[in-house]
Design a protein around this nucleic acid. Sequence first.
DNA 1: AACAAAGTTGATTTATATGGAAACTTTTGA
DNA 2: TCAAAAGTTTCCATATAAATCAACTTTGTT
Lengths: 110, 110
Amino acid sequence: MAAKNRKMKMMTLDQMKDQDLGKVGTPERDTYEFDLRMEILGDTIKSVRKERNLTQEELGKLIGVQKSQISKLERNTKNVTVETILKVFQALEANVRFRVEMNDVEFEVA
Amino acid sequence: MAAKNRKMKMMTLDQMKDQDLGKVGTPERDTYEFDLRMEILGDTIKSVRKERNLTQEELGKLIGVQKSQISKLERNTKNVTVETILKVFQALEANVRFRVEMNDVEFEVA
DNA sequence: AACAAAGTTGATTTATATGGAAACTTTTGA
DNA sequence: TCAAAAGTTTCCATATAAATCAACTTTGTT
């Protein structure tokens, strides 16, 4: 997957990603970054659920959905809506913070 | 809207919300909190766009949508998907951070 | 091994987010 | 003041997220 040039001593993760996945802004790279974030989101749901010692079925019951739906949110993670995210983490009694940074300015979309 | 009891000297915003909108967890209160967050999200898009000195039409062009769609995202804000949020703020060259807090543990869904 | 509990997957339905087109309203600047 | 630019709204189509159900696989536990 990586290391094309034998003379190269070090390579940052970002350099590797630039090379193997294309620069930021290209469709492939954007897709990769998006998929990664969605995967992390799914993993986070799972981690927090485990922390609360809940099964998918139990979490589902709290929200009012089947366990299969929870499974999909944890694994199958494509795109999700903000509402779904908030619903899940509220049931898990976790706080969701949402922040937009632009240059020096920060917007807290708490 | 508020101040039912004349003897009451002080009331926190949370107490007021509890009284006027119902406790956290009730459907009305959840709806209110959700609507508020979505409104803030819309306002944030608008603020950042203004900061960048872009019209809705120009921002739309960057993303590949009509100005009416930007208007809807800024005002009409109901629910949105994560993909849409990322797309918009990426076009605005703003960073979106997304964090889940549970007790002392923090999950960065960067 | 073998049974139950937990989790996953696929097919399908329903609800709704995304988006365009066009007419409309508001804002702004000459 | 009025014309153009910017923003809004309505009606509509399409794509897809949310959800169920049922069958399946995986993971413990005794």
